[in-house]
Design a protein around this nucleic acid. Structure first.
Lengths: 218, 218
DNA sequence: GCTCTAATAAAACGCACGATCAATTAATTC
DNA sequence: GAATTAATTGATCGTGCGTTTTATTAGAGC
Protein backbone atom coordinates (compact mmCIF):
# COMPACT_ATOMS: atom_id res chain seq x y z
CA UNK A 1 0.00 0.00 0.00
CA UNK A 2 0.94 3.60 -0.45
CA UNK A 3 -1.31 6.63 -0.50
CA UNK A 4 -4.55 5.73 1.26
CA UNK A 5 -8.09 6.51 0.19
CA UNK A 6 -9.38 9.81 1.57
CA UNK A 7 -5.92 10.90 2.68
CA UNK A 8 -5.57 14.64 3.02
CA UNK A 9 -2.36 16.42 3.85
CA UNK A 10 -3.92 19.26 5.75
CA UNK A 11 -5.95 16.90 7.90
CA UNK A 12 -2.95 14.69 8.63
CA UNK A 13 -0.82 17.69 9.53
CA UNK A 14 -3.46 18.94 11.95
CA UNK A 15 -3.81 15.51 13.50
CA UNK A 16 -0.05 15.19 13.90
CA UNK A 17 0.12 18.53 15.69
CA UNK A 18 -2.82 17.84 17.98
CA UNK A 19 -1.57 14.36 18.82
CA UNK A 20 2.00 15.50 19.37
CA UNK A 21 0.83 18.22 21.75
CA UNK A 22 -1.11 15.70 23.77
CA UNK A 23 1.72 13.19 23.90
CA UNK A 24 4.53 15.65 24.59
CA UNK A 25 2.48 17.27 27.35
CA UNK A 26 1.77 13.91 28.96
CA UNK A 27 5.03 12.04 28.42
CA UNK A 28 7.58 14.71 27.65
CA UNK A 29 9.36 15.33 24.37
CA UNK A 30 12.16 12.82 24.93
CA UNK A 31 9.76 10.13 26.07
CA UNK A 32 7.46 10.46 23.06
CA UNK A 33 8.76 8.17 20.32
CA UNK A 34 8.02 8.82 16.67
CA UNK A 35 6.53 5.35 16.44
CA UNK A 36 4.06 6.09 19.22
CA UNK A 37 3.16 9.41 17.64
CA UNK A 38 2.59 7.72 14.28
CA UNK A 39 0.50 4.98 15.91
CA UNK A 40 -1.74 7.51 17.64
CA UNK A 41 -2.13 9.50 14.45
CA UNK A 42 -2.88 6.31 12.53
CA UNK A 43 -0.06 6.43 9.98
CA UNK A 44 3.37 4.92 9.50
CA UNK A 45 6.18 6.80 11.20
CA UNK A 46 7.73 7.66 7.84
CA UNK A 47 4.68 9.72 6.92
CA UNK A 48 5.63 12.25 9.58
CA UNK A 49 8.72 13.27 7.63
CA UNK A 50 6.53 14.44 4.79
CA UNK A 51 5.42 17.27 7.10
CA UNK A 52 8.44 18.01 9.28
CA UNK A 53 12.15 17.52 8.64
CA UNK A 54 12.67 16.03 12.06
CA UNK A 55 11.34 15.67 15.60
CA UNK A 56 13.05 18.79 16.92
CA UNK A 57 11.46 21.00 14.28
CA UNK A 58 8.03 19.76 15.31
CA UNK A 59 8.66 20.74 18.92
CA UNK A 60 9.99 24.14 17.97
CA UNK A 61 7.09 24.77 15.63
CA UNK A 62 4.56 23.90 18.33
CA UNK A 63 6.25 26.16 20.87
CA UNK A 64 6.75 29.10 18.55
CA UNK A 65 3.20 28.96 17.23
CA UNK A 66 1.86 28.87 20.75
CA UNK A 67 3.86 31.91 21.80
CA UNK A 68 2.83 33.85 18.72
CA UNK A 69 -0.82 33.08 19.24
CA UNK A 70 -0.46 34.11 22.87
CA UNK A 71 1.13 37.43 21.97
CA UNK A 72 -1.51 38.13 19.34
CA UNK A 73 -4.33 37.28 21.72
CA UNK A 74 -3.01 39.60 24.44
CA UNK A 75 -2.33 42.30 21.91
CA UNK A 76 -5.97 42.14 20.89
CA UNK A 77 -7.29 41.84 24.45
CA UNK A 78 -5.15 44.61 25.88
CA UNK A 79 -6.83 47.25 23.75
CA UNK A 80 -10.04 46.90 25.75
CA UNK A 81 -8.73 48.20 29.08
CA UNK A 82 -7.31 51.63 29.80
CA UNK A 83 -6.36 52.58 33.35
CA UNK A 84 -3.43 50.64 34.85
CA UNK A 85 -5.80 49.08 37.36
CA UNK A 86 -8.16 47.91 34.63
CA UNK A 87 -5.27 46.74 32.53
CA UNK A 88 -3.71 44.72 35.33
CA UNK A 89 -7.05 43.10 36.07
CA UNK A 90 -7.50 42.39 32.38
CA UNK A 91 -4.03 40.89 32.11
CA UNK A 92 -4.57 38.53 35.03
CA UNK A 93 -7.98 37.46 33.75
CA UNK A 94 -6.66 36.97 30.26
CA UNK A 95 -3.56 35.09 31.37
CA UNK A 96 -5.50 32.69 33.55
CA UNK A 97 -8.22 31.96 31.03
CA UNK A 98 -5.80 31.58 28.16
CA UNK A 99 -3.47 29.31 30.11
CA UNK A 100 -6.08 27.11 31.72
CA UNK A 101 -7.80 26.61 28.38
CA UNK A 102 -4.55 25.64 26.63
CA UNK A 103 -2.94 23.43 29.21
CA UNK A 104 -0.95 21.28 26.79
CA UNK A 105 0.56 24.25 24.96
CA UNK A 106 1.48 25.94 28.20
CA UNK A 107 2.87 22.79 29.75
CA UNK A 108 5.07 22.17 26.75
CA UNK A 109 6.16 25.80 26.79
CA UNK A 110 7.22 25.52 30.40
CA UNK A 111 8.74 22.06 30.39
CA UNK A 112 10.42 21.60 27.05
CA UNK A 113 12.58 24.68 26.70
CA UNK A 114 15.54 22.48 27.52
CA UNK A 115 14.69 20.05 24.75
CA UNK A 116 15.24 22.80 22.18
CA UNK A 117 18.56 23.44 20.49
CA UNK A 118 20.33 26.66 21.49
CA UNK A 119 19.02 28.76 18.59
CA UNK A 120 15.44 27.60 18.89
CA UNK A 121 15.58 28.09 22.62
CA UNK A 122 16.77 31.66 22.20
CA UNK A 123 13.86 32.41 19.88
CA UNK A 124 11.30 31.13 22.37
CA UNK A 125 12.95 32.88 25.31
CA UNK A 126 12.71 36.14 23.43
CA UNK A 127 9.01 35.65 22.76
CA UNK A 128 8.44 34.90 26.43
CA UNK A 129 10.26 38.08 27.42
CA UNK A 130 8.07 40.05 25.05
CA UNK A 131 4.95 38.67 26.73
CA UNK A 132 6.28 39.43 30.20
CA UNK A 133 6.99 42.99 29.10
CA UNK A 134 3.29 43.44 28.49
CA UNK A 135 2.73 43.06 32.22
CA UNK A 136 5.81 45.05 33.15
CA UNK A 137 4.54 48.05 31.20
CA UNK A 138 1.26 47.96 33.08
CA UNK A 139 3.06 48.02 36.41
CA UNK A 140 5.31 50.82 35.17
CA UNK A 141 2.34 52.93 34.14
CA UNK A 142 0.50 52.19 37.36
CA UNK A 143 3.50 53.30 39.35
CA UNK A 144 3.87 56.49 37.30
CA UNK A 145 0.18 57.25 37.77
CA UNK A 146 0.53 56.66 41.54
CA UNK A 147 -2.15 53.99 41.28
CA UNK A 148 0.17 51.23 42.43
CA UNK A 149 2.66 50.95 45.27
CA UNK A 150 5.42 48.64 44.10
CA UNK A 151 8.83 48.13 45.60
CA UNK A 152 10.40 46.24 42.69
CA UNK A 153 8.72 46.07 39.31
CA UNK A 154 10.81 43.24 37.87
CA UNK A 155 10.17 41.00 40.84
CA UNK A 156 6.50 41.86 41.03
CA UNK A 157 6.10 41.10 37.33
CA UNK A 158 7.65 37.70 37.78
CA UNK A 159 5.69 37.00 40.93
CA UNK A 160 2.38 37.69 39.20
CA UNK A 161 3.31 35.57 36.18
CA UNK A 162 4.51 32.73 38.39
CA UNK A 163 1.52 32.61 40.68
CA UNK A 164 -1.02 32.74 37.86
CA UNK A 165 0.78 30.26 35.63
CA UNK A 166 1.02 27.96 38.66
CA UNK A 167 -2.75 27.47 38.55
CA UNK A 168 -2.26 24.86 35.86
CA UNK A 169 -0.39 22.69 38.36
CA UNK A 170 -3.49 22.05 40.42
CA UNK A 171 -6.59 23.16 38.53
CA UNK A 172 -9.04 20.50 37.44
CA UNK A 173 -12.24 21.30 35.55
CA UNK A 174 -14.38 19.70 38.25
CA UNK A 175 -12.82 21.87 40.95
CA UNK A 176 -14.94 23.69 43.51
CA UNK A 177 -14.27 26.92 41.61
CA UNK A 178 -14.78 27.78 37.96
CA UNK A 179 -11.97 29.35 35.99
CA UNK A 180 -13.76 32.70 36.12
CA UNK A 181 -14.06 32.53 39.90
CA UNK A 182 -10.43 31.62 40.28
CA UNK A 183 -9.46 34.44 37.96
CA UNK A 184 -11.34 36.97 40.08
CA UNK A 185 -9.60 35.76 43.23
CA UNK A 186 -6.25 36.10 41.53
CA UNK A 187 -7.15 39.56 40.28
CA UNK A 188 -7.72 40.51 43.91
CA UNK A 189 -4.42 38.99 44.95
CA UNK A 190 -2.66 40.71 42.09
CA UNK A 191 -4.15 44.07 43.05
CA UNK A 192 -3.06 43.55 46.63
CA UNK A 193 0.41 42.71 45.43
CA UNK A 194 0.72 46.07 43.67
CA UNK A 195 -0.85 48.00 46.49
CA UNK A 196 -4.09 48.78 44.65
CA UNK A 197 -7.63 48.18 45.76
CA UNK A 198 -10.18 46.11 43.91
CA UNK A 199 -12.63 48.28 42.05
CA UNK A 200 -16.28 47.41 41.89
CA UNK A 201 -17.46 46.51 38.40
CA UNK A 202 -20.67 45.73 36.58
CA UNK A 203 -21.08 43.57 33.50
CA UNK A 204 -22.24 45.76 30.65
CA UNK A 205 -22.51 44.11 27.28
CA UNK A 206 -20.11 41.32 28.25
CA UNK A 207 -17.48 43.74 29.52
CA UNK A 208 -16.52 44.52 33.09
CA UNK A 209 -17.03 48.21 33.60
CA UNK A 210 -15.91 49.98 36.77
CA UNK A 211 -18.50 51.58 39.01
CA UNK A 212 -18.07 54.77 41.00
CA UNK A 213 -15.11 57.12 41.22
CA UNK A 214 -11.59 55.89 40.67
CA UNK A 215 -10.01 54.72 43.88
CA UNK A 216 -6.47 55.78 44.68
CA UNK A 217 -4.55 53.90 47.33
CA UNK A 218 -3.04 57.14 48.61
CA UNK B 1 40.53 -5.23 34.84
CA UNK B 2 38.02 -5.35 37.59
CA UNK B 3 38.02 -3.62 40.96
CA UNK B 4 40.29 -0.57 40.73
CA UNK B 5 42.87 0.61 43.22
CA UNK B 6 41.47 3.04 45.75
CA UNK B 7 37.89 2.23 44.84
CA UNK B 8 35.43 2.95 47.62
CA UNK B 9 31.75 2.13 47.47
CA UNK B 10 30.59 5.04 49.55
CA UNK B 11 32.57 7.53 47.53
CA UNK B 12 31.32 6.11 44.24
CA UNK B 13 27.73 6.15 45.47
CA UNK B 14 28.06 9.80 46.46
CA UNK B 15 29.61 10.70 43.13
CA UNK B 16 26.87 8.90 41.24
CA UNK B 17 24.20 10.81 43.12
CA UNK B 18 25.85 14.19 42.71
CA UNK B 19 26.55 13.60 39.03
CA UNK B 20 23.07 12.27 38.33
CA UNK B 21 21.51 15.32 39.97
CA UNK B 22 23.55 17.62 37.80
CA UNK B 23 22.82 15.73 34.60
CA UNK B 24 19.13 15.16 35.20
CA UNK B 25 18.67 18.82 36.12
CA UNK B 26 20.45 19.95 32.97
CA UNK B 27 19.27 17.39 30.41
CA UNK B 28 16.21 15.81 31.94
CA UNK B 29 15.81 12.25 33.15
CA UNK B 30 14.95 10.74 29.79
CA UNK B 31 17.77 12.55 28.04
CA UNK B 32 20.44 11.41 30.50
CA UNK B 33 21.82 8.08 29.31
CA UNK B 34 23.39 5.62 31.70
CA UNK B 35 26.53 5.68 29.57
CA UNK B 36 26.87 9.44 29.94
CA UNK B 37 26.28 9.19 33.67
CA UNK B 38 28.93 6.50 33.97
CA UNK B 39 31.37 8.50 31.86
CA UNK B 40 30.94 11.59 34.02
CA UNK B 41 31.35 9.54 37.19
CA UNK B 42 34.41 7.84 35.71
CA UNK B 43 33.25 4.23 35.81
CA UNK B 44 31.72 1.70 33.46
CA UNK B 45 27.95 1.85 33.18
CA UNK B 46 27.64 -1.62 34.72
CA UNK B 47 29.12 -0.34 37.98
CA UNK B 48 25.99 1.72 38.50
CA UNK B 49 23.89 -1.40 38.96
CA UNK B 50 25.92 -2.30 42.01
CA UNK B 51 24.29 0.67 43.74
CA UNK B 52 20.82 0.91 42.24
CA UNK B 53 18.59 -1.75 40.70
CA UNK B 54 17.74 0.55 37.77
CA UNK B 55 17.56 4.09 36.48
CA UNK B 56 14.07 4.72 37.76
CA UNK B 57 15.01 3.83 41.33
CA UNK B 58 17.83 6.35 41.21
CA UNK B 59 15.44 9.12 40.19
CA UNK B 60 12.93 8.17 42.85
CA UNK B 61 15.62 7.99 45.50
CA UNK B 62 16.93 11.45 44.60
CA UNK B 63 13.45 12.97 44.67
CA UNK B 64 12.34 11.29 47.88
CA UNK B 65 15.52 12.16 49.73
CA UNK B 66 15.20 15.76 48.64
CA UNK B 67 11.64 16.03 49.88
CA UNK B 68 12.50 14.41 53.20
CA UNK B 69 15.42 16.74 53.77
CA UNK B 70 13.17 19.69 52.88
CA UNK B 71 10.50 18.63 55.36
CA UNK B 72 13.08 18.06 58.08
CA UNK B 73 14.71 21.41 57.45
CA UNK B 74 11.41 23.30 57.65
CA UNK B 75 10.36 21.31 60.68
CA UNK B 76 13.53 22.49 62.41
CA UNK B 77 13.31 26.06 61.13
CA UNK B 78 9.63 26.50 61.93
CA UNK B 79 10.22 26.15 65.66
CA UNK B 80 11.99 29.49 65.75
CA UNK B 81 9.04 31.69 64.83
CA UNK B 82 5.80 32.06 66.75
CA UNK B 83 3.21 34.60 65.63
CA UNK B 84 1.56 33.87 62.27
CA UNK B 85 3.20 36.98 60.86
CA UNK B 86 6.64 35.86 61.99
CA UNK B 87 5.97 32.34 60.83
CA UNK B 88 4.87 33.43 57.37
CA UNK B 89 7.94 35.61 57.03
CA UNK B 90 10.10 32.73 58.22
CA UNK B 91 8.48 30.34 55.76
CA UNK B 92 9.06 32.60 52.79
CA UNK B 93 12.67 33.28 53.79
CA UNK B 94 13.32 29.61 54.39
CA UNK B 95 11.63 28.49 51.19
CA UNK B 96 13.57 30.93 49.03
CA UNK B 97 16.95 30.27 50.59
CA UNK B 98 16.49 26.52 50.58
CA UNK B 99 15.27 26.42 47.00
CA UNK B 100 17.80 28.80 45.51
CA UNK B 101 20.64 26.95 47.22
CA UNK B 102 19.46 23.56 45.95
CA UNK B 103 18.50 24.39 42.40
CA UNK B 104 19.17 20.95 40.96
CA UNK B 105 17.13 19.12 43.58
CA UNK B 106 14.25 21.55 43.18
CA UNK B 107 14.38 21.51 39.41
CA UNK B 108 14.27 17.73 39.36
CA UNK B 109 11.45 17.77 41.88
CA UNK B 110 9.40 20.08 39.67
CA UNK B 111 10.21 18.64 36.27
CA UNK B 112 10.53 14.90 36.70
CA UNK B 113 7.36 13.97 38.50
CA UNK B 114 6.08 12.62 35.22
CA UNK B 115 9.14 10.41 34.78
CA UNK B 116 8.19 8.48 37.91
CA UNK B 117 6.05 5.36 37.88
CA UNK B 118 2.55 5.74 39.37
CA UNK B 119 3.47 4.48 42.84
CA UNK B 120 6.63 6.51 43.16
CA UNK B 121 4.82 9.55 41.88
CA UNK B 122 2.11 9.16 44.50
CA UNK B 123 4.74 9.02 47.24
CA UNK B 124 6.38 12.24 46.12
CA UNK B 125 3.05 14.01 45.61
CA UNK B 126 2.14 13.16 49.18
CA UNK B 127 5.39 14.60 50.51
CA UNK B 128 4.81 17.78 48.53
CA UNK B 129 1.33 18.10 49.96
CA UNK B 130 2.76 17.73 53.45
CA UNK B 131 5.16 20.59 52.81
CA UNK B 132 2.42 22.81 51.41
CA UNK B 133 0.36 22.11 54.50
CA UNK B 134 3.04 23.76 56.58
CA UNK B 135 2.24 27.03 54.86
CA UNK B 136 -1.49 26.45 54.87
CA UNK B 137 -1.46 26.05 58.66
CA UNK B 138 0.28 29.38 59.05
CA UNK B 139 -2.38 31.09 56.96
CA UNK B 140 -5.11 29.31 58.90
CA UNK B 141 -3.69 30.47 62.21
CA UNK B 142 -3.16 33.99 60.93
CA UNK B 143 -6.78 34.15 59.82
CA UNK B 144 -8.02 32.79 63.15
CA UNK B 145 -5.92 35.35 65.00
CA UNK B 146 -7.27 38.13 62.77
CA UNK B 147 -3.75 38.97 61.74
CA UNK B 148 -4.36 38.14 58.09
CA UNK B 149 -7.13 39.03 55.68
CA UNK B 150 -7.44 36.16 53.24
CA UNK B 151 -10.25 35.40 50.85
CA UNK B 152 -9.23 31.85 49.96
CA UNK B 153 -6.58 30.01 51.94
CA UNK B 154 -6.00 27.19 49.46
CA UNK B 155 -5.42 29.60 46.60
CA UNK B 156 -3.26 31.93 48.62
CA UNK B 157 -1.12 29.02 49.76
CA UNK B 158 -0.55 27.93 46.19
CA UNK B 159 0.07 31.47 45.03
CA UNK B 160 2.81 32.02 47.61
CA UNK B 161 4.45 28.69 46.84
CA UNK B 162 4.29 29.34 43.09
CA UNK B 163 5.68 32.84 43.17
CA UNK B 164 8.57 31.96 45.47
CA UNK B 165 9.49 28.73 43.71
CA UNK B 166 9.40 30.68 40.47
CA UNK B 167 12.50 32.59 41.55
CA UNK B 168 14.63 29.67 40.40
CA UNK B 169 13.48 30.31 36.85
CA UNK B 170 15.34 33.61 36.62
CA UNK B 171 17.71 33.97 39.55
CA UNK B 172 21.43 33.97 38.79
CA UNK B 173 24.08 34.34 41.47
CA UNK B 174 25.49 37.47 39.83
CA UNK B 175 22.10 39.16 39.83
CA UNK B 176 21.67 42.74 41.02
CA UNK B 177 20.10 41.37 44.21
CA UNK B 178 21.41 38.82 46.69
CA UNK B 179 19.23 35.93 47.76
CA UNK B 180 18.64 37.60 51.10
CA UNK B 181 17.51 40.82 49.46
CA UNK B 182 15.19 38.96 47.15
CA UNK B 183 13.80 37.01 50.08
CA UNK B 184 12.97 40.21 51.94
CA UNK B 185 11.14 41.61 48.94
CA UNK B 186 9.13 38.42 48.62
CA UNK B 187 8.36 38.50 52.34
CA UNK B 188 6.84 41.92 51.78
CA UNK B 189 4.86 40.68 48.81
CA UNK B 190 3.71 37.65 50.78
CA UNK B 191 2.56 39.82 53.67
CA UNK B 192 0.67 42.07 51.27
CA UNK B 193 -0.96 39.02 49.77
CA UNK B 194 -2.38 37.98 53.14
CA UNK B 195 -3.39 41.50 54.10
CA UNK B 196 -0.73 41.92 56.78
CA UNK B 197 1.81 44.67 57.18
CA UNK B 198 5.55 44.17 57.21
CA UNK B 199 6.90 44.39 60.73
CA UNK B 200 10.13 46.17 61.48
CA UNK B 201 12.85 43.82 62.66
CA UNK B 202 16.36 44.02 64.04
CA UNK B 203 19.07 41.42 63.72
CA UNK B 204 19.84 40.06 67.19
CA UNK B 205 22.33 37.24 67.31
CA UNK B 206 21.73 36.27 63.73
CA UNK B 207 17.95 36.19 64.17
CA UNK B 208 15.37 38.64 62.92
CA UNK B 209 13.49 39.93 65.94
CA UNK B 210 10.42 42.15 65.58
CA UNK B 211 10.52 45.69 66.94
CA UNK B 212 7.64 47.61 68.48
CA UNK B 213 4.04 46.56 69.18
CA UNK B 214 2.31 43.96 67.08
CA UNK B 215 0.48 45.50 64.16
CA UNK B 216 -3.04 44.36 63.38
CA UNK B 217 -4.48 45.12 60.00
CA UNK B 218 -7.88 45.82 61.56
C1' DG C 1 48.33 -15.30 54.41
C1' DC C 2 44.05 -17.28 53.34
C1' DT C 3 39.19 -16.48 52.76
C1' DC C 4 35.44 -13.85 51.80
C1' DT C 5 33.17 -9.99 50.12
C1' DA C 6 32.87 -5.48 47.89
C1' DA C 7 33.76 -3.00 43.73
C1' DT C 8 34.58 -2.82 39.44
C1' DA C 9 35.66 -3.88 34.06
C1' DA C 10 34.58 -5.73 29.65
C1' DA C 11 31.59 -7.53 26.56
C1' DA C 12 27.36 -8.35 25.03
C1' DC C 13 22.07 -8.78 24.91
C1' DG C 14 17.81 -7.58 22.74
C1' DC C 15 15.38 -3.82 21.60
C1' DA C 16 13.66 0.66 20.31
C1' DC C 17 15.18 4.88 18.62
C1' DG C 18 15.14 8.76 14.83
C1' DA C 19 15.52 8.85 10.25
C1' DT C 20 15.85 7.31 5.17
C1' DC C 21 14.59 5.28 0.79
C1' DA C 22 12.26 3.28 -2.86
C1' DA C 23 7.93 1.94 -4.33
C1' DT C 24 3.12 2.72 -4.83
C1' DT C 25 -1.33 4.64 -5.00
C1' DA C 26 -4.87 8.55 -4.63
C1' DA C 27 -6.05 12.93 -6.01
C1' DT C 28 -5.49 16.77 -9.08
C1' DT C 29 -4.58 19.10 -13.35
C1' DC C 30 -4.97 19.79 -18.06
C1' DG D 1 -7.73 9.82 -19.71
C1' DA D 2 -2.89 10.71 -19.50
C1' DA D 3 0.48 13.13 -16.87
C1' DT D 4 1.69 15.05 -12.71
C1' DT D 5 1.79 15.76 -7.93
C1' DA D 6 0.65 14.68 -3.09
C1' DA D 7 0.43 11.29 0.45
C1' DT D 8 1.67 7.29 2.32
C1' DT D 9 3.53 2.41 3.06
C1' DG D 10 6.85 -1.09 4.22
C1' DA D 11 11.30 -2.25 4.83
C1' DT D 12 15.46 -1.01 6.60
C1' DC D 13 19.67 1.62 8.29
C1' DG D 14 22.92 2.52 11.84
C1' DT D 15 23.00 3.87 16.48
C1' DG D 16 22.40 4.11 21.20
C1' DC D 17 19.49 2.59 24.86
C1' DG D 18 18.90 0.20 29.72
C1' DT D 19 20.42 -3.77 31.55
C1' DT D 20 22.74 -8.44 32.32
C1' DT D 21 26.39 -11.69 32.59
C1' DT D 22 30.75 -13.15 33.67
C1' DA D 23 35.17 -12.55 35.19
C1' DT D 24 38.52 -10.33 37.90
C1' DT D 25 40.83 -7.68 41.35
C1' DA D 26 41.18 -4.78 45.85
C1' DG D 27 40.35 -4.55 50.46
C1' DA D 28 38.61 -6.49 55.08
C1' DG D 29 38.39 -9.98 58.64
C1' DC D 30 40.35 -13.56 61.02
Amino acid sequence: MARTIGSDGEKTRTTIEATAKRLIARLGYEAMSMRLLADEVGVQSAAFYHYYPNKQELLFSLMRDHMERLLDAWDYESRKAHSPLERLSAFIRFHIHYHVERRDDVHIGNMELRSLGPENRATIVELRARYENGLREILDDGLDAREFVIDDIALTTRAIIAMTTGINLWFRADDRLTVAEIAEKYVQMGLRLVGAKKIETVKTGGRNVPVGPKIRSF
